[in-house]
């Protein structure tokens, strides 16, 4: 029992503690960092307009992508949960399998779809020419789909959507379907039943899914790096740059701990909300 704890303390907690300590330090030479207890790194992250903009952008991109994930994953989870029992495992597997395929490879696959001479533009050009729009508006201009915010959002949704399905499916599956019958029986329309019965009762799953997807999105590095290029950087890319190219570890450490605090905040919200929910059910 002790080895696991010891491993986690040594190779997880200790490194994090070091980063935490470094975030209060400053560089004294190229390879030395002195821990001076300064708050300058945090102050810089939260006052410099350049970094504030990137933090703000990371937040809205993650929030928007999380919302899109919910909008896509909810109907899918709903369908799976109401499918025949023999189909459920297969359908779930189809959704979850991509999640196990390497993140890098899935992101790389999207590059081939989105680039100027990629599959998406090919498809659009084909539709454009089939509709003979080229006679009306001139030859097809490939859309710039890669290296912008659109690519990052599409990539994040593509990569994390399967992760959203699991908690949603679990809570829709647990939903007592006779409540829906009762609601329909008592004269509520399908949409009223959905918004007043199904959604409130599956709220724990929705909250869980939103937070489980939002946290890795906010800290994502690979997707904005490969799909966003220099135009659509997120906080993860800034952290990576501080630790590699810019060699400003204290600032990078402060940024990653800001990210950690947001994570803890999100997790706290989740436990408060789920605690209240179960309290109401009892």
């Amino acid at each position: 029992m002790i080895p696991g704890t010891a491993w986690l303390v040594l190779f997880f907690l200790a490194p994090l503690a070091i980063i935490w300590a470094i975030s209060f330090g400053e560089n004294t030479s190229l390879v030395k960092t002195e821990i001076t207890g300064t708050l300058d790194n945090y102050w810089r992250a939260l006052s410099d307009v350049v970094y504030l903009k990137i933090i703000w952008k990371s937040l809205w991109i993650s929030l928007l992508s999380t919302a899109l994930c919910l909008a896509i994953a909810y109907p899918i989870s709903f369908l799976i949960s109401f499918a025949k029992d023999k189909w459920k495992p297969l359908l779930l597997m189809i959704v979850i399998l991509p999640f196990w395929i390497n993140l890098l490879i899935r992101t790389y696959a999207l590059i081939a779809v989105f680039r100027t001479r990629g599959f998406a533009n090919f498809g659009l050009e084909w539709i454009y020419n089939t509709l003979q729009l080229d006679h009306l508006f001139g030859a097809f201009e490939p859309l710039p789909l890669l290296y912008n915010n659109f690519a990052v959002i599409a990539g994040l949704v593509y990569v994390f959507m399967p992760f959203m399905v699991l908690p949603l499916y679990a809570s829709i599956e647990r939903l007592d379907k006779s409540y829906l019958e009762a609601s329909l029986d008592l004269g509520a329309s399908q949409s009223r039943t959905f918004w007043s019965v199904t959604v409130p009762l599956t709220m724990p799953g929705i909250v869980s899914g939103l937070i489980l997807v939002f946290i890795p999105m906010l800290g994502s590095f690979l997707t904005p790096d490969l799909l966003g290029g220099t135009n659509a950087q997120m906080i993860g890319n800034v952290i990576e740059r501080q630790f590699k190219a810019a060699n400003d570890w204290p600032f990078g450490a402060a940024l990653s701990f800001l990210l950690m605090y947001v994570t803890f905040g999100a997790l706290a919200i989740r436990s408060v909300l789920s605690g209240r929910k179960s309290g109401m059910e009892v």
Binding site: P15, T33, I239, F243, L259, T263
Partner: peptide, 25 residues
């Protein structure tokens, strides 16, 4: 909760922590 921590914290935070732990400190 402590055991689940490596699963929930952003990968990049763990990555830079490992970098600091193994390379310099």
């Amino acid at each position: 909760g402590f055991m689940a921590l490596p699963i929930v914290i952003p990968e990049i935070c763990m990555g830079v922590a490992m970098l600091a732990f193994f390379s310099r400190v």
